[in-house]
Computed example of a mutant assay.
Amino acid sequence: MKEVIVVMGISGAGKSTVGKALANRMGMPFLDADDFHPRENVMKMSSGQPLDDDDRWPWLAAIVEHILQSHRPCFVLGCSALKESYRLYLAQRLKLHLVYLEITAEEAHRRLKRRKGHFMPATLVQSQLDALEIPSSAFRLSATLNITKSVDLLAEHFSTLQ
């Protein structure tokens, strides 16, 4: 079964930044879940409309299929994975290790307002917080980090993968 470290959280939490650094440190490929959104999802979010489950299920399926079709055994995936049902879906086909990035709404707004060239507007932070189900004890959580934690510590935590 493919092993995937999912760096999860709301938009602006640092999933891509932390995920890329972790993947680089561990010599694993990084996948950005945003790259798997169909054009319709990107257009919807760009116009300030939040995604719903009907938008997210095909997107998650595309991510899983890409991973399963790859010859690589391990990945780091930057993915919001906002709901427990999404994480459970991923875990049915992949061996997941979750890293939840905590961030305040204020900090997420600040970061998204500064970010250039991305489709996700700061106005959707609240909709992401509304959809977010913090990983529960029912799901094995490998790490919860606030945004100031070191990537080196995280890589050390996962040093047995590969």
Rank of each mutant, 00 (worst) to 15 (best):
A13E: 11
S16K: 01
L77Y: 10
D55Y: 03
A105V: 15
V76T: 00
S127P: 07
L51T: 11
S11Q: 05
P58F: 06
H118W: 07
I134C: 12
L132E: 03
E84G: 09
A105L: 07
V76C: 01
D52I: 14
L98T: 14
G14V: 12
H118R: 09
V4E: 03
L88S: 12
E156T: 14
L96R: 07
V4P: 00
L31T: 01
N41A: 11
Y100L: 10
P73L: 08
P121A: 09
R114E: 15
L51P: 13
S159H: 05
P38Y: 02
R140D: 12
S127W: 08
I10V: 15
G9I: 07
I63Q: 04
P50G: 03
M43A: 15
V151D: 00
Q162N: 14
K2Y: 04
K116M: 11
A122P: 08
H37I: 13
I67D: 02
T17N: 11
R110Y: 12
Q162F: 10
A21R: 00
V125W: 07
E133T: 13
L161R: 03
L112M: 09
L51I: 15
L88T: 14
V4M: 00
A62H: 12
M1K: 06
Q49V: 11
A131C: 15
S80E: 05
F158W: 09
E102C: 08
L98N: 02
V99E: 00
E84L: 15
R115E: 08
Q162T: 11
G19K: 00
S85M: 09
H97L: 02
Y100K: 03
M45F: 12
P73K: 04
E84P: 09
S85V: 14
L129A: 10
T144D: 04
D53G: 10
T148F: 06
S80H: 00
H97D: 03
H97N: 10
F36I: 06
E106M: 08
G19M: 00
L31H: 00
E84Y: 12
L124H: 06
D52M: 11
T104E: 04
N24I: 01
A122V: 10
T123E: 07
R110F: 08
M43F: 12
A33Q: 06
R111P: 14
Y86T: 08
T144H: 10
G78T: 02
V42T: 13
A81T: 14
Q128H: 12
R111Q: 02
L88P: 05
Q162G: 13
A138V: 14
D54H: 12
V151I: 14
Y86M: 05
S70F: 04
H118G: 02
D34S: 10
L145T: 11
I63K: 03
T160E: 05
P38I: 15
M28Q: 01
R115F: 11
G48A: 13
S85Q: 06
L141R: 06
C79H: 06
P121H: 08
M45D: 07
T17Q: 06
M120L: 09
